[in-house]
Design a protein around this nucleic acid. Structure first.
Lengths: 233, 233
DNA sequence: TAGATTGTTAATCGATTAACAATC
DNA sequence: TAGATTGTTAATCGATTAACAATC
């Protein structure tokens, strides 16, 4: 086996359907609500109802995790939570660094939810001398020059990119060179990464595009209705 | 026509495919790069190549906007940019308010990209007395008690929810009551809204779930490879 | 003209949903 | 038992991709 990995396919295993993966956190949150209420079991019917989905979809999604439920009864909530968390690897701590200690970086550092999902952001890095040496939300901010040694010494797996787009690829390259294995990219740049490094990009504007389209359709529909039955090609 | 709107369907018009809508900002960004380079025309082949897509998909997506290109030549970049922007309504200013002036709210206020997309955040609202009266990124922060009158007086269309989940529905209700027509929800709560108010939720953890799954598959594949050909059911 | 490209219809693929047997 | 539910196979739906004619 050699390190230049020629035959690593884009999908390491077979890959699970992305829409299903994206729904898992929804289930997890809902199940924790039930747990908090002291409920012990949940059926797909109930989960689906509470999340505005249909039960067969919930069942199929949950089956990814290998859970097995009991007819008429449903799933054991504690077990289901454990299954989802271990399926996503959220039961294990994954060490991460964040590069770009601006407003967006600060928001991610401050979002407690990610900690619950096993994400442990050990340090932030920036070029701004006013930030270097300080702490943001009890996370130390270091110089970008120290990124490589920090990643190596602390066996960091995940790199979070929250820098301006002009330097996003540069930062990613530094991360890759330092031995990072996964990049969570909040910049709009399509990062180039080797096949041995996975990458997931959060497109902040894509959600706004969907909202904008809905708004436009809504306003258009209203205009049409108000100018009664006056059709316009 | 009465205000209780019984027959407003979830999809006002017919609704465009969400995956296509989400790709439009990618095209827009790439086209602006070309424009910046002084290029006048772009083909789908080129756009697709630069974005890691295939040309027929780009062509189909762009056709939503009603653009027409010239065989062998491609599309006029200026025109295409205009088409995409007007298709999404990004050529018009949409007034918005943001409720929850925390770290996430601050990041959204600071993200210049949204301004370019016609989003004009006129004011932020919070309950924290230390924040009320201040400005975040030159956006004034008011008391949540002033939300309703502000929305009415300034004809605000969009409400951005960046509050903790415990109060998300409460805030949404206030927005709806004040006359907001669209909610951009950054809380993990499934907000209940009347059919006359559109809502788009940004699930921050869904992207992390996808990344986590990729990481897990990657690590599993490596383990398998290192423990050579020792298959394990 | 030849060849690159657009625009569109048809085929394919993948995800969602329906149907139904098994089960507690 | 009857009925609600799980688990799974089949059908449907929608998005992607292939094929190809039209065009500059």
């Amino acid at each position: 086996m050699n390190k230049s990995e020629k035959n690593v396919p884009q999908d390491y295993k077979k890959g699970y359907p992305s829409p299903s993966l994206q729904r898992l956190p929804l289930y997890l949150r809902q199940l924790k609500l039930y747990q908090h209420e002291g409920v012990e079991r949940a059926s797909c019917t109930r989960i689906a109802q509470d999340l505005g989905l249909i039960s067969v979809q919930v069942r199929k999604d949950l089956s990814m995790t290998g859970i097995s439920g009991r007819p008429k009864v449903g799933y054991n909530i504690d077990e289901l939570i454990n299954r989802i968390e271990s399926f996503l690897g959220w039961d294990k701590k994954r060490k991460a660094v964040l590069v770009g200690a601006g407003a967006l970086g600060g928001a991610i550092l401050g979002y407690a939810g990610f900690v619950e999902h096993g994400l442990s952001i050990c340090a932030a890095f920036d070029v701004d001398k006013n930030k270097i040496g300080t702490s943001i939300r009890s996370c130390p901010v270091y110089s970008i020059d120290d990124l490589e040694s920090f990643v190596e010494q602390n066996q960091i797996v995940i790199g979070i990119v929250t820098v301006p787009q002009s330097v996003a690829q540069l930062v990613a390259d530094k991360m890759i060179h330092a031995g990072i294995r996964a990049i969570w990219n909040y910049s709009p740049v399509r990062l180039v990464t080797p096949p041995s490094v996975v990458c997931e990009t959060v497109q902040l504007s894509s959600s706004f595009a969907v909202l904008s389209s809905k708004v436009k359709s809504m306003l258009a529909a209203e205009k049409e209705t108000s100018s009664n039955s006056q059709s316009k090609d």
